[in-house]
Amino acid sequence: MGRLIAVLLFIAVLVPGVLLGRAWWLAGGRRTVAAGAVELVEPTPEGARTLQRQAQHGRRIRLLGLLLGAAGVIGSVVVLAEASVFLWVPVLLLGLLSGVLLAEATRPRPRWSTTVPPRRPRRSDQISGWLVWTMRAVVAAQVAVTVPQWRSGELSDGVGWAALVAPVVAWVLAEIALLRALLRPLPAQGADVPVDEALRTWTAHLVTAAATVLALLPLGTLLLRAGIDPDGASEGFDVLPVALVAGGFSALAAGVAVAGFLLTWLRPVRSDARALTR
């Protein structure tokens, strides 16, 4: 009976990760609609220049993030030698996702004329509120899991700072980018409205996905660590270790899934393929 309960509990804890993956799969439909709307209109010259400028900005900052990640890998090799081999992928991933977040949080403001009086879109026009609040909940859960383990001495200071600071900073950058996308006034020219909506949609999904991944992966690792810790399990059947292990697997699987969807959003908004190659 205990094993049956453990299996059912394991499956139940995996459900949130499955639902999150499905929500991001559905978000792909929003991307298709936004991209299709841009293709159906001919933007103004300033709208075309905005698309080109935004695409170049995103590529440059993401490349900077990649270079920072590579520098972090080299630094870990210098400091830790062979022991750094397990840090290469996390450090490089941190650099890449930091580049995504910085690119969206620092996007240049479009130079087209705006509506008078200024009109602004709703958040629901850009991204599902469920995805945004899931990002916030995952970051909060990561903080709630990290702090007790750090205080109890289960985590070293270096690991504790990394597991705490990276998701929180990512969340702050994501909120800045979301706020900028929400407060920017709509363009005055109707032909630029689909372009503007697509840019906001891309930004909202990119930063939400990046912050979610940076919180889910360390959260899953810490939950797995706590679940398989022999000192944390009692004799006989114990529900808590099973729940921790299941939660860890669910968080890691969801993090990988969201990262996969994030890759599909990296392609910039296009009105004409030639517009971004000139």
Rank of each mutant, 00 (worst) to 15 (best):
L4A: 13
A6K: 10
A6H: 13
L8C: 13
L9V: 15
I11A: 14
I11P: 05
V18M: 07
G21E: 13
G21S: 15
A23N: 06
R31G: 00
A34E: 10
L40H: 14
L40G: 12
V41P: 05
E42R: 07
E42M: 08
E46I: 11
G47Q: 02
H57Y: 07
I61C: 08
R62F: 13
G65D: 10
L66Y: 09
L67I: 15
L68I: 00
A70R: 01
A70F: 05
I74M: 15
V79F: 10
A81N: 02
E82R: 01
E82Q: 01
F86H: 14
W88V: 11
P90E: 05
P90Q: 04
G95K: 01
L97Q: 07
S98N: 09
E104P: 00
E104K: 00
T106H: 01
R107H: 13
R107F: 10
W112G: 06
R120G: 02
R123G: 05
S124L: 06
D125C: 06
D125M: 07
Q126F: 10
S128K: 04
W133K: 12
T134N: 05
R136T: 07
V138R: 08
A144R: 12
V145C: 02
T146A: 01
S152Q: 02
E154S: 09
E154D: 11
G160Q: 05
W161M: 06
A162S: 08
A163I: 04
V165G: 01
A166F: 03
V172R: 04
E175C: 04
R184A: 06
P187T: 06
Q189G: 12
Q189W: 11
D196H: 15
T203Q: 06
T203A: 12
L206G: 00
V207M: 12
V207P: 10
T208C: 10
T208D: 09
A211S: 14
L214W: 03
P218Q: 11
T221A: 01
L224S: 13
I228R: 09
I228E: 09
I228C: 10
D229I: 11
D229N: 15
P230I: 10
G232F: 04
A233S: 10
S234L: 11
G236N: 06
F237H: 11
L244E: 00
V245I: 15
G247Y: 11
G247K: 12
S250P: 00
S250D: 01
A257W: 11
A259F: 08
A259P: 01
G260R: 02
F261L: 03
L262G: 06
W265L: 13
L266R: 15
A273F: 01
